[in-house]
Amino acid sequence: MYHSGIWDKERAINEIRVYKTYDQIAFITQRAIDQLLRMYCRLILSWAGNKRMSVITMQRKQMLL
């Protein structure tokens, strides 16, 4: 928020919080996000496969595969 100019320096510092840790570490990469999106899109498209698909939907399906 500070870097995008929404908050000034004082507000950004006031928003810093310390939370109890739960010993959980997550490594999230753009590659992992892209793979999940592809998986969900394929699932949706396979569900929609039983229905009549428009030309745009077919083009999107080809891009995902």
Rank of each mutant, 00 (worst) to 15 (best):
A32Q: 07
R38W: 01
M1D: 05
C41G: 04
M53Q: 14
M58K: 15
D34A: 11
T21P: 02
S54E: 10
M53I: 03
G5S: 07
R52I: 02
S46D: 15
K9A: 08
A48V: 03
C41S: 07
R31L: 03
S4Q: 08
R60I: 10
M63N: 09
I13S: 01
H3F: 13
N14W: 00
R38L: 05
G5D: 04
I25F: 11
V18S: 06
H3S: 13
L45T: 06
S54F: 05
Y2C: 01
M39D: 11
C41D: 05
M58Q: 15
S4L: 08
L43N: 15
K51T: 07
L65C: 05
M1N: 04
Y22I: 06
K61W: 02
N14V: 00
Y19P: 00
V18K: 09
N14S: 10
F27T: 13
I25M: 09
Q30K: 15
H3L: 14
L36H: 05
G5K: 06
A48K: 15
Q30I: 12
R17G: 00
R60M: 10
L43C: 09
V55R: 04
M39Y: 12
C41I: 13
I28V: 13
L64Y: 10
L45Q: 13
H3D: 12
Q24K: 13
V18C: 01
G5I: 07
A48P: 00
M39F: 14
G49R: 07
M39K: 11
L36D: 13
Q24M: 13
Q62T: 06
L45M: 14
L36N: 10
Y22H: 12
R38Q: 12
D8K: 02
